[in-house]
Design a protein around this nucleic acid. Structure first.
Lengths: 348, 348
DNA sequence: CTGTTAGCGCATTCAA
DNA sequence: TTGAATGCGCTAACAG
């Protein structure tokens, strides 16, 4: 059976046509400085006539024992990964370091729980960077089990994996204090607690019910902040959104604003959520910050444009750090790499 | 020299421990249904004790002749790729199909022109999808030269590559007509013409000076539209932005609005650009659409929020179609897959 | 600077 | 259902 795809030429064929040994041909592509100009020309000419562009990557990987690629595991459905500006900033940082190190970047989308583990294990990569994972996600263990370096962004902590991220609890406590001081009825607009992504408004939820480490840590920090300002966490309304989406945030905030016990200080977990909240507050005929104090998170363009106080951190740098660690073992500590940018939304 | 990284177990070692042949172990992972339950159990138990998670991907690729991955070439610096919502929507579509087909998605960032071609050629992928490429970009030829399937999004056309995208010229003509009819002094806010990304305001540039196919086609369409409304293209101001960025668009538009021959009908190449233009127009004390008619492109959230007329197309679907073509050969025609969404920004 | 040898780990082919 | 033999294409290690 003749395949219509022409079989690619091999290095051995190129060498034969060039009248040199296979190794000379190999060196021509892999370590050109070790080959005389004359041989190199002969080899390249032969390669050109045979349509040989580069040594077969699979054979090269097998022989060298390295894949030449870093795997990025998007721990959840793609919609949430590519739609989220923070996630894309993170990936841009990873990509930057990969390019700089001459490595490819392999996206390993998590799709079907029954096959994800196998796909992670079988990936042709030299290390893994994991984004947005739930506690106990099987993909984390699958990555660790391969024996290759694993970096997890913002938890969960796991033996055998390096964690990169800021101290979300401390940052949440700091910004929570700031916003809660601007009112008397604090509330929180939250990311989903679990991968089930249930949306709801609840009073004083147990932060430990959140299986997303980022959500949990920030809830813990907001609870700390409530304590700091003398409010009982049990009285604090937490509106949980199913996604990091301004529209949903707007709807949830609308609900909060129409309650008898209307909050007047709203801490949110992202600038997208804050942006939606801002619009809902104005739409309700209320004003930020006089009627409702408001904060976001990430110091994104939306926060700047709308004058929303936010937590600044660089996802791009964190992505780069994750990649650098996985590829070269270089450590970087981001624990304290955040600060609060105060804007009009929390002005007294 | 002992590496601290433990050598991974091989299939042969697993087989030996399980007391079966290597092939039985191989089948257990590759085609489990062909192995008796008893053997399978023995093999899996042995694998577990040896920490063997999956057959070596490089060896498997070499033997099978397939990499199991699709390459996505981001034709330009990463900043522009991951910062652009359209690009990320496109990648989400590619990723979706890769996940569905059980393939990995390898991002091949273009970084250093001297090594890009080699990286493209040497990538362990079964096909290529190219995004945002300039005419004559060497990476296109490099991808084609590998003999693997190549799909280019929105041009440039090249022998051996399949092109996916809408008819940008026709769409530009249609929306250009609409916006230009809303005034008497038309102007255009454009993407960069070439990879040099020079920013400038020029009157009636030759569309063929643009080496980015998307830019060129849209300029051609806007020129058609100018003809349609009886305006000499040579009199049409084109403000060229260096990136697809609202801030830069705002500054460029501010410049346009302060001219004696102030435009009153502005066609832009994206909703980001339109969004920046909108703010500049309002900041100049003018009003959309009464003082200046305005259009965007892509029907993104920004256009919806600000009521900007736009060209709707699905980048996600186009990304999915590109991946599907490269992976399975399935064709899809997007030529006419666009429509105009009219909003207040072009209301008479 | 160039060549020889050897084998990376696996799955196809064929036989039992 | 299982197994033996073979070689995918390449490059490390070592001569010469």
């Amino acid at each position: 059976m003749n395949s219509h795809v022409p079989r690619r030429a091999t290095l051995a064929q190129v060498a034969e046509l060039a009248g040199v040994s296979t190794m000379t041909a190999s060196y021509t592509f892999g370590r050109p400085e070790r080959v005389s100009a004359a041989s190199r020309e002969k080899v390249l000419a032969a390669a050109r006539t045979l349509g040989f562009t580069a040594p077969d990557p699979a054979a090269r990987s097998l022989r060298r024992g390295r894949a030449g690629a870093l795997g990025v595991v998007l721990g959840e459905h793609l919609t949430y990964a590519f739609d989220d500006p923070q996630a894309t900033a993170f990936m841009a940082g990873v990509a930057e370091v990969c390019a700089e190190q001459g490595q490819a970047m392999t996206i390993l989308p998590v799709a079907d729980a029954t096959t994800d583990v196998a796909r992670i294990s079988a990936a042709a990569v030299d290390g893994y960077v994991l984004w947005t994972t739930e506690d106990g996600a099987p993909v984390v263990d699958a990555a660790i089990a391969t024996g290759r370096p694993v970096v997890v962004h913002s938890g969960p902590a796991a033996a055998g994996a390096h964690v990169v991220g800021i101290d979300n609890r401390a940052a949440a406590r700091a910004i929570g204090r700031l916003v809660f001081a601007g009112g008397t009825v604090p509330a929180v607009l939250s990311f989903p607690l679990t991968a089930a992504r249930a949306a709801a408004v609840v009073a004083g939820p147990d932060p430990d019910d959140a299986t997303f480490p980022v959500t949990r840590e920030r809830l813990l920090g907001f609870r700390d902040a409530a304590d700091d300002v003398g409010t009982d966490w049990a009285d604090v309304l937490v509106a949980v959104c199913s996604t990091n989406d301004a529209r949903e945030a707007r709807a949830m905030t609308q609900e909060l604003m129409s309650r008898a016990d209307r909050p007047d200080a709203l801490a949110t977990m992202s600038d997208e959520l804050a942006s939606g909240a801002f619009r809902a507050i104005e739409a309700a005929g209320l004003h930020v910050p006089t009627d409702v104090a408001l904060t976001g998170w990430d110091d994104a363009e939306a926060a700047r444009a709308q004058g929303i106080t936010s937590v600044a951190q660089s996802m791009r740098e964190q992505g780069a750090a994750c990649a650098r660690y996985a590829l070269t073992g270089t450590r970087a500590d981001f624990t304290d790499q955040w600060h609060i940018v105060e804007r009009a939304s929390t002005a007294r």
